[in-house]
Computed example of a mutant assay.
Amino acid sequence: MIVAGLWLLSNQGYYSFVSGLGMGGGYDHEPVLFTAYYLSWAAAALWLFRPLIAAGLNRRTIAREGLVFLRILGGLALFVVYALPLLPKVSELRAPSEAPEFMFASAWYYLPKSAEILFRQTLVAALVLTAARAGYGLLAITIGMAVAFGGFHLLLMFEGFTPVYVTRFTPSATALGALLPYLYLKVQAGFRWAYSLHWGFYALNATLTHLILAAPPWA
């Protein structure tokens, strides 16, 4: 219930900001503000679940994982700064009438998106570890996370995403949700893998979108 509450409140807060302050561009319009926004939510989640997440970790482990995570973020930044601009621009004629924000976003969009994914994965880690501590087996947690992660992404239909994108995101989110318990419970340093896969989906989705909806060369 705490995880669901944090997830829903963060979503509602975001749309309240966008609507109340007239930020039609969302992340791309105020990247620093929304980066701070989601980092604050991540910090709150870490504080609430600190005994659970910190169990079995020591300062050396935390420092080592922090350095590795910074290198991962550096690699993702290289994709955004150097690879993404090389992709063809999305054609306004081919894009849906109410196009999702990421379709025409600049590299700045991915700064708050990275903070948002950090917050989401903190919640997922807390949920998986809580279920494991409660005695649920890996199969039960896997099924539960697949349903929960996929179900949350069905809400995209209320966020301006077209049925095509809801159809694309929901099965992918379900598959990722099914994989996350294994990463967190069975793989050493599973958080880095979970975060990288989650972020990588958005990178893949952006790449495919730019290629599929690009203006034809004869246009």
Rank of each mutant, 00 (worst) to 15 (best):
M1L: 12
A4R: 07
G5P: 06
G5N: 04
L6D: 05
L6K: 02
L6M: 14
L9N: 02
S10D: 02
S10A: 15
N11Q: 12
N11A: 13
Q12F: 12
Q12T: 13
Q12L: 15
Y14S: 01
Y14R: 02
Y14I: 02
V18I: 12
G22F: 01
G22D: 01
G24A: 13
D28L: 01
V32L: 12
F34M: 12
F34P: 05
T35P: 01
L39N: 02
A43F: 12
A44I: 12
A45I: 06
W47P: 04
F49Q: 05
R50F: 00
P51D: 00
L52A: 00
A54E: 13
A55M: 08
L57W: 11
R59C: 02
R59T: 08
R60E: 15
T61E: 15
I62S: 14
R64M: 06
L67A: 13
F69K: 00
R71G: 14
R71A: 15
G74L: 09
G75C: 06
V81D: 04
V81G: 01
Y82H: 11
A83N: 04
P85Q: 07
P85I: 07
L86F: 10
L87K: 04
L87G: 00
L87I: 05
L87S: 07
K89R: 14
K89F: 08
S91L: 06
E98F: 14
E101F: 11
M103W: 14
M103N: 01
S106I: 00
W108M: 05
Y109P: 04
Y109Q: 01
Y110A: 02
Y110Q: 00
L111H: 02
L111C: 01
P112S: 01
S114P: 05
A115H: 00
A115W: 02
E116W: 09
L118H: 07
L118S: 10
L118E: 09
Q121H: 08
V124P: 01
A125V: 02
A125H: 03
A126K: 04
V128L: 00
L129A: 01
T130H: 12
T130I: 09
A131C: 10
A132R: 12
G135E: 00
G137S: 10
L138S: 01
I141N: 00
I141E: 06
I141T: 10
T142Q: 04
G144Q: 08
V147W: 03
V147Q: 03
F149A: 15
F149K: 15
G150D: 03
H153N: 13
H153L: 10
L155M: 15
L156H: 15
E159G: 03
F161S: 09
F161Q: 12
T162R: 06
Y165V: 07
T167L: 15
R168I: 13
P171N: 11
P171H: 07
S172K: 01
L176F: 15
L176M: 15
G177E: 02
L183G: 03
V187K: 09
Q188L: 11
Q188F: 14
Q188P: 12
A194W: 08
Y195A: 08
S196N: 03
L197D: 09
L197A: 07
L197K: 06
W199R: 08
G200E: 08
F201I: 11
Y202Q: 07
Y202A: 04
Y202S: 11
A203W: 14
N205V: 07
N205E: 11
T207N: 02
I212T: 04
I212V: 13
I212D: 07
L213N: 04
A214G: 15
P216F: 05
W218R: 09
